[in-house]
Design a protein around this nucleic acid. Structure first.
Length: 803
RNA sequence: GCUGGCGUGGCGGAAUUGGCAGACGCACGGGACUUAAAAUCCCGUGAUGGUAACAUCGUACGGGUUCGACCCCCGUCGCCAGCACCA
């Protein structure tokens, strides 16, 4: 009786073996390969099968690279600052550090069930003072370079989380985390000047092997545009209003101007007649919530009573206020060309403002326009000297023309805003700044870092815009490091993104107490070759990390300026009907029971088999039975043949090489679901051959080697049973031999008039004439009329066209 | 509204990118083994007609290009994602 497949026994055995005999060792000669998972937040809920998927994908890829001769950097750590731990602390009066440590322990246990080859010596935790010392150090360097600055301004405020938010954290006017409606609050904030890196963040996307979708999202988020700033004199005053436009070619068509209600000149433009209405409009606009502004796009506005002069034709144009103009983009003021801009058209129609067409549409002046003509193509009309020019050409030249005229300049703009970096919460890195009445803002001296988070009695956020740290007098009051006078500490903390913006650097040198990473190790092991995680971070974490990396490159801390060479976004695993797994929906599937029942190897395979790795997949527990049966079948097949292997036949050798080829190409294109189906298909074929005449040892061995990255335990056990004393992971990934793969004959389809009528087996080297002759013969009773054409696509098809 | 992606059996999904549609798995049906069940193994399984060989239809819908279209082009519908007054 052959040995039976006991997954628990085997998996335990090899877990212990790998513990003692690690398979991934740095011999100093191998090339490195850095495969990184987005590190998890240690949630109290533990992992569900969706989290597993990403980790399985990265481990399969890592083990594949290992078998291709690389030394792997494949680390894991904890993104452990953040609100859930803090909210838990508020509710249960347990220090976040305590609950976090418990959660880490549990999730680490779960992650170990995956049997991924993580190098736990490299583990990092963003809440560890030895780690956040460097998070603070980076902030200090940014402060010294003027990239971290303090500013009071209306920022996005989540009334439920009671903290300010970055632009990136506001989704459809709601808090990214808790989905409460975001309001505006005027707060003094630390900001990071990410806009200074706008061009590089955009241009360098070209160099990255990332999904186009993510690149597109970042491109749109950064939102670079080219145009001109043009100055419009105010009628009867010495002042000018500067506007930004991407369509300076339409300058002659500007029939009015609109300022954001928050514009510095807004109030002063009112006349005695309009003052009351203007002031009311400004107040109303200030009270409008983000969601209001987003959902209600009907144009509102108020005429200031004042006019500007169109600098091209000296015509007087009315100045209006409207909240469709954003205060914090461009100059907060726009020139309006209703004939060629949808929004201006809507506004002009509503308020009866003249519309002047300046680009001919289809060579014509339309007269009464019913909609704006927004294309920059056509001949200029009603435009003085510019008449007759092509608008597309003029669009590019106009910025230089206005510059020469002394009324403006070429200008580029970004949608990207500086990063609001202060959080009014407890569980984050304290911002290492001291406010001195004489010296102003002074950085905490580097030798005093880390500035540790003090114990606090109440974690409750105050809601006033101050962090709970502000209540600790003994901590707040300090001496200025520069002049020694009484001073106060900054009490805001950093956002959760701070630690995750650079953690991947620390893994390669996590015990260094002199530098955040040594240049030697950074040069040797970085950057990350493959980064695997969900798409939800497309513009948050991934943009911030790129910014941090570029900054650290600029100050010479590291020698590369893009952190992640290749990115893979795995799809979500959902419950029935595509519903996201969540505690409240009650549809969370824990991997623990499945590992117990079917084993780690089966769950690993099923995580891949459930669907294409880049797409969302619905979890169905029943499907795991299928992969379990496959493993058990393969196991039995191997065991039964152990003492009766036959010599390799030509067919077996061919199949073996075809398998190598199929698995390798599918693996290289990340088609991991079809890798698994490929294994199953081949296993079925082997079963058949085994019943018919037997199978050879080499084929089974190759199968085991190929299966190893996917189902490592069963592969090791079978490898040992096949008589090997070293780990299967010491094996080199096999190569397919083209010649051995080739078949002497091939089955091809024969069509008549494009319809399948027969299949024939032809010699692989058959000539066109031979193939067609054979094909014609096979369908001779299905031909009617005269043959007018005969087509042969080598190795694929014969098609006979008759009429 | 704009941009991008997708639409294939009862279900999850394959199809070497223009060449035999539905691989593989689930589910279902039949059979073998068993006192019986479970497990396991074998066979079948897009629809319609036919005892059958076979024929016709079939990749959201309507058209087109081609010897040949799930794949390319034009139009329509539906779903998903991102952005959302950025001038």
């Amino acid at each position: 009786m052959a040995k039976a497949y006991h997954h628990q026994k085997i998996e335990q055995k090899w877990t212990e073996y790998w513990e003692k005999h690690p398979v991934n060792v740095d011999d100093g000669k191998k090339e490195k390969y850095y495969c990184l998972d987005m590190f998890p937040y240690p949630s109290g809920n533990g992992l569900h099968v969706g989290h597993w998927r990403g980790y399985v994908i990265s481990d399969v890829w890592s083990r594949y690279k290992l078998m291709n001769g690389y030394y792997l950097i494949h680390p894991m750590g904890w993104d452990a600052f953040g609100l859930p731990a803090e909210n838990y602390a508020i509710k249960n009066k347990i220090h976040p550090a305590v609950s976090t440590a418990e959660n880490v322990k549990n999730i680490k246990r779960q992650i170990n069930q995956i049997a991924a080859i993580y190098d736990w010596d490299r583990e990092v935790n963003t809440t560890d003072p030895d780690f956040y010392k460097w998070t603070q150090w980076i902030f200090v360097q940014m402060f010294k370079k003027g990239l971290a600055y303090e500013k009071e301004m209306p920022i996005n405020w989540c009334p439920s989380c009671k903290t300010g938010l970055a632009n990136e954290e506001v989704v459809n006017g709601k808090c990214e985390r808790c989905h409460s409606e975001v309001t505006k609050k005027n707060l003094k904030q630390w900001m990071l000047k990410i806009t200074e890196y706008g061009d590089r963040l955009l241009d360098d996307l070209d160099r990255l092997d990332w999904p186009e979708k993510v690149k597109r999202m970042q491109t749109e988020w950064i939102g670079r545009s080219y145009g001109a700033e043009v100055e419009f004199p105010i009628d009867g005053r010495d002042e000018k209003i500067t506007v930004y436009t991407t369509r300076p070619d339409t300058l002659y068509g500007a029939t009015f101007m609109v300022l954001a209600p928050e514009h510095a000149l807004a109030k002063s433009l009112a006349t005695d007649e309009t003052r009351e209405a203007v002031e009311k409009y400004i107040t109303d606009a200030a009270n409008k919530s983000n969601v209001d502004r987003l959902q209600n796009k009907e144009k509102t506005g108020v005429f200031t009573g004042t006019y500007a002069i169109n600098p091209m034709n000296q015509k007087k144009i009315p100045i209006w206020l409207s909240d469709y103009v954003l205060a914090d983009y461009g100059t907060g003021a726009i020139m309006c060309v209703p004939a060629h801009d949808d929004r201006d058209f809507e506004f002009a129609t509503q308020f009866n403002i003249p519309i002047i067409q300046v680009i001919a549409k289809d060579g014509k002046e339309i007269g009464h326009m019913t909609e704006a003509y927004t294309e920059a193509s056509g001949t200029m009309i009603n435009s003085g000297d510019w008449n007759g020019m092509e608008s597309a050409v003029l669009k590019a030249e106009a910025p230089h023309i206005v510059e020469k005229m002394g009324i403006g300049r070429a200008k580029k703009n970004f949608k990207l805003r500086d990063w609001v970096f202060s959080r009014q919460r407890y569980w984050g890195e304290p911002i290492p700044i001291i406010h001195c009445p004489d010296c102003g803002n002074v950085a905490v001296p580097e030798e005093e870092l880390p500035l540790t988070l003090p114990e606090v009695e109440s974690y409750q956020p105050t809601g006033t815009g101050e962090s709970p740290l502000a209540a600790i007098d003994s901590w707040v009051n300090c001496k200025c490091p520069q002049c020694g006078k009484d001073a106060k500490r900054e009490t805001n903390t950093m956002p959760q993104w701070a630690g995750s913006s650079w953690y991947f650097l620390r893994y390669v040198d996590n015990k260094n107490d002199k530098e955040l990473v040594s240049r030697e190790k950074a040069d040797k092991y970085l950057p990350v070759d493959m980064y695997i995680g969900g798409v939800e971070h497309a513009v948050l974490h991934l943009l911030y990390s790129r910014f941090y990396t570029k900054f650290l490159y600029d100050i010479g801390a590291i020698g590369f300026d893009e952190p992640f060479t290749k990115l893979f976004n795995q799809g979500m695993v959902t419950g029935k009907n595509g519903v996201k797994m969540s505690k409240s929906m009650g549809n969370v599937i824990s991997p623990d029971d499945l590992v117990e029942k079917y084993g780690c190897d089966s769950l690993r395979l099923y995580e891949l088999f459930v669907g294409p790795p880049e797409l969302d997949s619905e979890w169905d527990d029943r499907g795991i039975e299928g992969v379990y049966r496959f493993l058990a079948k393969f196991w039995n097949l191997a065991q039964e043949n152990m003492d009766r292997f036959i010599e390799p036949t030509e067919e077996l050798t061919r199949l073996r090489h075809q398998l190598i080829h199929a698995i390798t190409t599918r693996l290289n294109t990340f088609s991991l679901n079809t890798v698994v189906s490929g294994f199953m298909e081949f296993n079925n074929k082997l079963g058949e051959l085994s019943r018919k005449g037997g199978i050879d040892k080499e084929t089974v061995e190759t199968f085991v080697v190929l299966l190893a990255p996917f189902a490592p335990h069963i592969a090791e056990e079978l490898w040992q049973d096949l008589g090997h004393e070293t780990s299967v992971f010491a094996e080199k990934w096999p190569e397919a031999d083209e010649e051995a793969m080739a078949e002497d004959t091939k089955e091809i389809a024969v069509q008549v008039n494009g319809k399948l009528r027969a299949t024939i087996r032809i010699k692989a080297d058959a000539t066109k004439e031979e193939a067609i002759a054979q094909g014609r013969d096979a369908v001779k009773d299905k031909l009617s009329g005269n043959i007018i054409k005969e087509i042969y696509v080598p190795g694929k098809i014969v098609n006979i066209v008759c009429k």
